[in-house]
Design a binder for these strands. Structure first.
Length: 409
DNA sequence: TCTGGGGTCCTAGGACCC
DNA sequence: TCTGGGGTCCTAGGACCC
């Protein structure tokens, strides 16, 4: 069997590059990629972390996900620009559409990364390296930002390769290059080997990917259970996963918000939950999905996270139904601690609602269901036109505000 | 630590059933 | 009840990614 050829395309400093392109387009005189700059959140709202950094900022030691406060200490003249997610999604889609012209076997791995299965296309393109360079240069010329392209015989190797040296580079990590290019790297550089895994590996005297590749299977199994197999295979550059849309059984959507101060007032918290329910159920309906499990996630002022979930009897996308359960979960699970963050997650998503209608119910309940759906659709349309939560069913408002109202009675 | 937001997958432990 | 063992489902929490 001939080897597969996989490309991994990774946008360099995606958020910062895309913002730079946006600003230049708007007539901004400076290319923010050439100065010490970052994309960051609003510190006054306690969203102050670094989302992306310019190469100059990187050189000054600024790291992604550190606080803007820390970053400014390293560079007092640092320029900070807000994230523009709508624009990022536009740029992401544009890139995906472009890459799709090379192969139908493509996977959007994240907002700024794609895998392409190029196996068997060499009769069209002659040389894979040349093709990768052309893709990289075309993106630079046509879209105004740079990417790295990694080439390997599987997704893992392609991904590791695209990470080698940045920006604006093509790298290969073929089977026969694993010992020379992959093995010398720190084991923490391996995809899916995070902080905790690295700590345990280091304790086992495993420091490089080569160490891991030669590690004793029994020792790994004892320390990592099922993850051991992944780790060993990854260190050997083995991966047989396919390029294609994720077929996850348990997908979910979520919404969460770091509050601008610690909340303890339950009515205030419920207001946030209400707003979040409206927003996330709108997303759910837009994706034509139904949820069967709802969860609330909390983070308190000690940075301790916890969560609680409850199932619904039948899949639904109805705001009122979902909010009622959100309130039930909240009542059962909130520990009365000062909350830094709160969020809702809808899990166990289904493409249809498969409502179980009682045999004795005749068709009256079905009729009711349809009416509710029509009503909900109308509301969504109006909200999309005029703003997010302009209209909510009166009954929902009552649930959301009843206690607040009582105060004034 | 002045520490975002949106995801996926895995595991341990409890409930429940036979 | 001086109470076995296995399977399945569910929940909460944790690790990791970008």
């Amino acid at each position: 069997m001939s080897e597969r050829i996989i490309f991994h395309v990774d946008v360099n400093n995606a958020f910062l590059s895309w913002t730079a392109v946006y600003l230049l387009k708007k007539g901004y005189q400076i290319d923010i990629r050439t100065i010490p700059s970052i994309i960051g959140g609003d510190e006054s709202l306690r969203h102050g972390i670094v989302l992306a950094k310019s190469p100059v900022a990187k050189k000054l030691g600024i790291k992604t996900a550190e606080t803007i406060y820390q970053a400014k200490k390293k560079c007092p003249t640092l320029k900070i620009y807000p994230a523009n997610y709508e624009w990022y999604y536009q740029k992401s889609n544009e890139l995906y559409e472009y890459l799709k012209t090379y192969t139908p076997v493509i996977e959007r791995f994240s907002i700024d990364e794609c895998f392409l299965d190029m196996t068997g296309t060499n009769y069209l393109y002659h040389d894979y390296l040349e093709l990768a360079s052309k893709i990289k240069d075309d993106i630079k010329t046509n879209f105004g930002y740079t990417v790295n392209v990694g080439i390997g015989n599987n997704k893992l190797c392609a991904k590791m390769a695209s990470d080698f040296e940045k920006p604006d580079k093509v790298h290969t990590l073929f089977k026969d290059e694993i010992a020379s290019k992959l093995w010398p790297l720190d084991v923490g550089d391996l995809f899916m080997c995070g902080k905790k895994t690295k700590e345990v590996l280091n304790k086992l005297n495993i420091f490089t990917i080569k160490d891991l590749a030669h590690a004793n299977d029994k020792v790994l199994e004892k320390n990592f259970k099922n993850q051991a197999i992944y780790l060993k295979n990854a260190a050997l550059g083995l991966d047989d996963s396919k390029v294609g849309p994720k077929t996850s059984k348990n997908s979910s959507i979520s919404i969460s918000e770091t509050l601008s101060y610690d909340y303890t007032d339950e009515e205030k918290i419920k207001e946030v939950l209400f707003r979040q329910t409206q927003e996330i159920t709108r997303q759910l309906r837009k994706q034509k999905l139904y949820t069967k499990t709802i969860a609330i996630t909390y983070k308190n002022n000690q940075f301790i996270s916890y969560s609680a979930q409850m199932p619904l009897p039948n899949p639904t996308n109805n705001t009122k139904e979902i909010y009622e359960l959100v309130l039930a979960i909240f009542a059962k699970s909130y520990k009365k601690d000062p909350l830094r963050l709160i969020g809702i997650r809808l899990a166990d998503l289904k493409a249809s609602k498969e409502t179980q209608i009682s045999l004795f119910d005749e068709d009256s309940s079905l009729q009711k269901e349809n009416n509710t759906e029509e009503f909900q659709k109308t509301i969504d349309t109006i909200n999309e036109k005029f703003g997010k939560s302009l209209i909510a069913p009166a009954s929902l408002k009552i649930i959301g505000e009843s206690k607040t109202k009582n105060k004034y009675k």
